[in-house]
Design a protein around this nucleic acid. Structure first.
Lengths: 209, 209
DNA sequence: TGCGCTATTGACCAAGCGGTTAATACATAC
DNA sequence: GTATGTATTAACCGCTTGGTCAATAGCGCA
């Protein structure tokens, strides 16, 4: 069925290297044009490859999208506590320091947050995305829950495990809420003032008698 | 250029009625299949109309999308304070009551929240969407800011207008953060516990001396 | 050197998209 | 009853998309 076909395949590469090259290109495309703009052809063009090759390494487009989601989650919700914060002995202060650190970190790469948000919305329709999202979110939340349990005064009745979990959830709300709101109107938002308000809230938290 | 053409135009309708009919269909389609599934043809099929007619009333697809966004914003971020909450005299309790009310309200229609989130993500790329979003978010936030100013102890130096605005922003984070997290893993989330944590935070807020 | 394996390419395909338009049926005005 | 205007339809168009595939070129190995 072929009419004419010169063809000129480029140089070869190991599977791992090619996958990484393609994933990197996909990441860049998604950051710039969003998930809508993440087409097989756009990724291939960015990686300077034929679009057939992209589908050769990632059999279907959604496999590429899921691999990219792993990368986004790893870079966004993988919480590593810096040494100087881990060294803070007072749990309350440690929680506040971690808060500040994460707020600044996540505010610095708004495009990645936006990409995370796009996946988030798609998670409502796609069970696989939702599951990956759930795992990432859970580990992120757990880090806060761990510190929150120590920061809370350990009263017998009032503070159950559920409370600590809920407190961790509110912490995540406060952290993600800032870049998400700032994404829409950057003018009205000062990270310092937001942090001051959150600090005021957290500072009074363990005062419970 | 026409080959053959019986055609059978249906009954006519006033412009306003048709637009409403189409918008309603678009809303239903978007709720079920997300913005990705919001195609002119899908909307037309749902409204039992030809897809040409949809484009006759909304000249371009994005005009339909923007009109739908208005509807979503009106139903989601238009904050009307119920009488029983407005009657609460203590500003702190009023703020808490409004919090509970909004949490429950927004948690009841998760699909609409998801749709709002999809638009939100697209606002990062589309200036018109972003502007509409900003207006809606601003009015929503202002309602909280208004009550927050009264709830805060009016100390001269420490509580400026910026603080109240930032506090309103944290309130919005806490309110939107819940359904957004619950959207991903509904199992780990109890609205009661989350509310208890938020109530604990807010309850201690005005204690500042 | 020559052989086989496979990564790579470009052409191809069907499906679905937004958008346009000639033909047509309906409602209204006269 | 007839003419006018327009809301409505179905066919059509050009384009992009994800996916497939025969042909091919480069590489390791004998």
């Amino acid at each position: 069925m072929r009419r004419k076909g010169p063809s000129m395949p480029g140089h070869k590469a190991t599977e791992a290297a090619r996958r990484e090259q393609i994933l990197k290109a996909a990441y860049e495309v998604a950051l710039r044009r969003g998930i809508d703009g993440l087409t097989v052809r756009a990724v291939a063009a960015r990686a300077r490859l034929s679009h057939g090759l992209v589908l050769f390494h990632f059999k279907r487009k959604d496999q590429l999208g899921l691999a990219l989601l792993d990368r986004v989650l790893a870079r966004t919700l993988a919480l590593t506590i810096p040494d100087d914060i881990g060294a803070v002995t007072n749990p309350r202060e440690r929680l506040q320091a971690l808060f500040r650190h994460e707020m600044h970190r996540l505010s610095q790469e708004p495009r990645r947050i936006r990409l995370l948000l796009e996946y988030w919305a798609r998670g409502a329709h796609n069970a696989v995305i939702r599951e990956k999202m759930s795992v990432g979110l859970d580990s992120y939340r757990r880090a806060f829950q761990h510190i929150a349990e120590k920061a809370l005064p350990s009263e017998p009745g009032r503070l159950s495990k559920g409370t600590a979990a809920a407190l961790a959830a509110t912490a995540v709300s406060l952290i993600l809420g800032y870049p998400v709101q700032a994404m829409i109107d950057p003018d009205h938002f000062e990270v310092a003032e937001y942090l001051a308000a959150v600090d005021g809230i957290l500072g009074q938290l363990p005062k419970a008698a």
